[in-house]
Design a protein around this nucleic acid. Sequence first.
DNA 1: GGTCTGGTTTGCGCTGGCGCAAATCCGTAG
DNA 2: CTACGGATTTGCGCCAGCGCAAACCAGACC
Lengths: 227, 227
Amino acid sequence: MDADMLAGMELFAGLPEAALRDVRAAARIRRLPGDTHIFGQGEPAAHVHALVEGGVRITQSGSDGGEAVMRFIGPGEMFGTVALFTDRLYPAEAVTLGEAVEASWGEAALHDLIGRHPRIALNILGIVGRRLAEAQERIRELSTQRVERRLAHSLLRLADQAGQGGANGTTIRFPLTRKDVAAVAGTTLHTASRVLTAWEKAGLILTDQRHVTLRQPEALRRIAEEE
Amino acid sequence: MDADMLAGMELFAGLPEAALRDVRAAARIRRLPGDTHIFGQGEPAAHVHALVEGGVRITQSGSDGGEAVMRFIGPGEMFGTVALFTDRLYPAEAVTLGEAVEASWGEAALHDLIGRHPRIALNILGIVGRRLAEAQERIRELSTQRVERRLAHSLLRLADQAGQGGANGTTIRFPLTRKDVAAVAGTTLHTASRVLTAWEKAGLILTDQRHVTLRQPEALRRIAEEE
DNA sequence: GGTCTGGTTTGCGCTGGCGCAAATCCGTAG
DNA sequence: CTACGGATTTGCGCCAGCGCAAACCAGACC
């Protein structure tokens, strides 16, 4: 099962079977309870991580209290990788949302793997590039759009990234508090709560035990795109 | 002169002399007048670019009118690179600020170079990683800080990136309109104008022919950091 | 059952900064 | 010199959404 998982990850896409054996051999797999602190902002980076199951929240906080969610990691995604190629300090904090299964590789092992399979470096470059593009899109949204649109966009992005199709719509696969949603859309807990509750009453979404389901994605898309 | 320049760029850092010869041989160097459109958002990416002299503004615009400046490129920096490793479409638009000298490499040439000198891929990864970290910092700022602080931060970042030390302080090496400053700090032309004018009257900064000089960086830093 | 903790909802007042509009300044072209 | 266009400054009114505060709800623990 992890065997398939690893082979399916973008990080190791296009590698021959022999290489995947190397990868599997070097991996450490761990099952983590909810709210586990995987690494903290500013700590020296010694591993690269990938998520097999569950969800992880990546948060950055400033010297003042300000916190923002940089990203939620879903199954199959890597995280904590960039640090190994820059100043070797994690730029943000990673915490599990609910129970999760994580794979990780030591720095030496990773560089060894890259040395033998340069394709991995290109894969990472593709992933990081896409995340940069996404970050820039968020910057534009934060600069020019108002809260409702940003919230709608955030939900759609999450559904797109970690959505589980179901009878009543798409459910986001990991639990999210209102605070989480607020921090990813760049607003306050209170405003996020107001808007989401309104949407819930209107039947656009549904939240059950921290789990958000988009019942009318088209309506949300309309809000997100609307002039 | 370009010879030294290329060797000094982070993109080609750590390469042996022989490799630099390859790089130089494959480069196309162009002198561009001000306001030249180098590439547009959504266009297929065929080259990777680096700036030898002058400044370039990278702007992203949404389907609505919203525009935000993603970055200013100073001498020695590369740009338009990420596209070649993701969907092969430029995610933003690049325009020269004032006259500039640009070097570029075709896609085939770049991949060829990387094949022969894998170190280049790692260099790119470092650069892109750092930009991602910077983008995330901006996201946090936009989410949690108010306009004054963001403006101060933006100026400091620019000075840090493309500052020219002088008698009266640090001057940013390329011309910036109020609109540019507004778009990089995520506010409107009007608000940016008000704040900058106030700072100018207070002697914190000085603008002459679109060129901004920080006369009291410490004061700005205090504004940027202040509780 | 009672209590405690963490999340959520909701009301209310205040304000940062946006939007509109007008005036001004400056560089360039005629 | 004059006219014109782009950039900048500035005044004014308004409102989205933040901040504070209080109430509410649900699950966990005793």
